[in-house]
């Protein structure tokens, strides 16, 4: 996708989304919308490393949680502006991203990357659990200040509308950054890396440098989303933002929309957050549903909803593409 057309699409989508609070007046519906937008930022930022960078990480919740806790604690204890604290939280998340990407870059093979990133997220969660004097552990960090006022716009727990606009701006910025990265030489290089890491290296693409940059951007965006989340919900517990459940939601969103597509993760986040809210009667069964969804999507629609038109088309024309492969041998040799 050309940068220009991507930017036009992002602009149109943002303007349309900005009109939503004019139509929807229910505080509850807006609350769901804010969560959808924050999760969209998470899914889109995870998509950067997993979908485009080809590094399938399982610890994205760590950056989200780091951004949230650091910003919340700074704002509570130092009394600084929440925007400053969110920025500092973002830098923390970014630095953490660089730290964990160094070992990850050395690993070939999805399972090793999955274990390393999961272990990292577990470390962050355990630290949040253990530093009870700071975080109060599972009993929860309460009394986080809402976002500092911007001019006449003030923030409070009672009103989701201002947060909606904040989250929308963050999402729009995220999308513009993702689009810009994709259109830049980095993005082009990633096309090559995804096709073949060795080939990319041999044509002189500095794979490592680009991957580090991608990791930094991705974790910074997740950290910023975490900061916004902290000052929105004003209560944090390690399990609610650092648990593997958060990661499961992010993966489900990115996958259902289509990994490695610009809008897929955002669409996925909106569909799942709003869709599951509509199925409110399921209530406690939400996470069960998320788990089942992951399994079903990966079997039925591994490329997400974005591949649906293509699948229908090929089914309609009955392409013989799978004939003669009934023993279904993987092309990839499993062991040298």
């Amino acid at each position: 996708m050309k940068l220009k057309s991507a930017l036009i699409q992002i602009t149109i989508a943002t303007v349309l989304a900005a009109l939503v609070p004019l139509v929807i007046h229910s505080e509850y519906a807006l609350h769901v919308a804010v969560l959808a937008l924050i999760f969209a930022v998470l899914a889109a930022s995870w998509n950067l490393v997993s979908g485009y960078g080809g590094m399938f990480t399982f610890g994205h919740q760590a950056f989200f949680g780091l951004g949230a806790y650091v910003s919340a604690l700074l704002a509570m204890h130092l009394g600084i502006s929440t925007y400053l604290s969110i920025m500092i939280g973002t830098v923390f998340a970014m630095v953490a991203g660089v730290v964990i990407c160094l070992p990850v870059l050395r690993l070939r093979g999805a399972p090793y990357i999955a274990i390393a990133t999961l272990a990292f997220a577990e470390i962050v969660k355990l630290i949040a659990d253990n530093l009870t004097s700071l975080t109060h552990g599972e009993s929860g960090l309460a009394g986080i200040p809402p976002l500092s006022p911007i001019g006449a716009m003030t923030f409070s727990i009672a009103d989701s509308r201002p947060y909606y606009y904040c989250a929308l701006v963050l999402l729009a910025v995220t999308m513009v950054l993702v689009a810009a990265v994709l259109a830049s030489p980095i993005g082009l290089a990633f096309g090559a890396i995804r096709d073949s890491q060795d080939a990319a290296e041999s044509i002189g693409v500095d794979v490592t440098k680009y991957k580090v940059l991608l990791f930094m951007l991705s974790s910074a965006l997740a950290g910023m989303a975490g900061g916004l989340f902290a000052h929105y919900v004003t209560v944090l517990t390690p399990s609610s933002i650092l648990g593997i459940d958060v990661m499961v939601q992010i993966i489900a969103m990115a996958l259902i929309g289509g990994l490695g597509t610009l809008f897929g993760p955002v669409v996925g986040a909106i569909i799942l957050t709003v869709g599951l809210e509509l199925l409110r009667s399921l209530g406690d069964y939400q996470l069960m549903l998320y788990g089942a969804l992951l399994v079903i999507i990966i079997i039925v629609l591994p490329r997400g909803l974005s591949s649906l038109p293509m699948l229908i088309a090929s089914a309609a024309t009955k392409q013989p593409s799978l004939r003669g492969e009934s023993w279904k041998h993987p092309i990839k040799q499993r062991e040298p």
Binding site: F56, F58, G109, A110, P111, A114, I244, D245, M247, V248, I251, A252, L255, D284, Y285, L287, M288, Y290, G291, A292, L293, L294, V295, I298, I299, P302
Partner: peptide
Amino acid sequence: EMPTLVATLGLSVFMQN
């Protein structure tokens, strides 16, 4: 590799809940 990771993660959350 990736699909089996995702599926077992989904299964894990499903079974836990």
